[in-house]
Design a protein around this nucleic acid. Structure first.
Lengths: 199, 199
DNA sequence: GTTAGCATGTAAGGAGTTACATGATTTT
DNA sequence: AAAATCATGTAACTCCTTACATGCTAAC
């Protein structure tokens, strides 16, 4: 989850860890709390070991916005990370290989959705439909509880189920709309994130 | 989280692990997936070590529904757990000592809410207000993103923020209603869960 | 008599968090 | 020169999951 999000953000532009955390907070803020440094820095280390990202400015030929990297890399302390070519492949691979984890958890679905602009249309549709199915399953579970076991439960438990059911119904409707848009091609234009840098 | 939920369910009646999991699934189903056995059984072991629950039928004087425990304890394999007096104290302590973890996570709030019928009114109010505050904070974060950074973000990221914002607004309204009810005393009757057994 | 579901458990590991420790830079 | 905030990191731990292993019991 973190791996995908980091690669996705570094795909847009090189950054140091602290800045990365801020951007992660806004990008993932709709479904997750801020990630901790104790999680972020070890993960950056691991991604570097794996070869998906590298320390310092991007390789020659990619000026990397000129006001970002050159000024900061010498400053001691700050470490700017840049995604590598293999990292970009890895990112696409993670985006496309979206299994059940992607539908099951709020976080799994959220991260993938957050990078839909870089995901191919077929995968987008697959994820949206997978998610819809899971939410429908949860919805049915709550409906069953409310219709079959309502008398046995206290008012607060019932209220929790009702609120949960309502949230599920809304999410399903939201997903239906998104799915319809995908099929119509009424989709926002994906990439083209400033042609100055990166792939 | 699991500890609280297990104590809460065993407070209602003695049960074996498998049955416990089923009840956990419906009780917590509105905000969490089913818990795994690999998590449940070790936790039961730990609760027993700590003295909050005990293996077998409840101590003499508490018949424990007569059709549950006596028939099953001899059956080999099935282990029925009963909450102890210390376990009941522990449960109340966990219910009342509701810190920030309770407001921060969906799960933390959900478990506490699920046992509101056994929580004292002051604590209920404190938890609801704490939760409202957190959700309002998240809501403000998303509003900021949508008003200040909207042009910089792709359509999917924006859609995620909008949907998240909508969910937060709804949750705040729901909490407002619950808080108003608590203050009015328009509250469902809490305990009195069959006077045959338990405290 | 074999499949399905009931029932209990262990070992290893994933994906994070908290608490701590340190130091540079900017603002007041 | 003190306080805030930027910036990086480590060690220990929490809480849970997956995968595996085992055996009983009911239904077909």
């Amino acid at each position: 989850m973190l791996e995908l999000a980091i690669l996705g953000l570094l795909h847009e532009s090189p950054m140091h860890g602290y800045e990365l955390r801020k951007q992660l907070t806004t990008k993932l803020g709709a479904f997750r709390a801020a990630i901790s440094y104790g999680s972020l820095y070890p993960t950056l280390r691991r991604l570097q070991t794996d070869g998906w990202i590298s320390e310092g400015a991007p390789p020659a030929g990619m000026p990397a916005s000129a006001d970002e990297v050159p000024l900061l890399t010498g400053k001691r302390g700050r470490v700017v990370y840049t995604i590598t070519a293999e990292g970009k492949e890895r990112f696409q691979e993670l985006l496309t290989a979206a299994g059940p984890e992607t539908y099951d958890s709020e976080a799994g679905f959220g991260v993938h959705f957050a990078f839909f602009a870089r995901t191919d249309p077929a995968t987008r549709l697959r994820i949206l439909e997978g998610r819809r199915r899971r939410v429908e399953e949860r919805r049915e579970g709550m409906r069953d509880v409310l219709s079959r076991a309502a008398e046995r439960l206290d008012a607060y438990t019932l209220e929790l189920q009702r609120h949960g059911l309502d949230a599920c119904e809304r999410e399903v409707r939201w997903l239906e709309e998104l799915i319809a848009n995908e099929r119509n091609g009424t989709t926002p234009q994906p990439p083209s994130a400033d042609p100055e840098r990166s792939s």
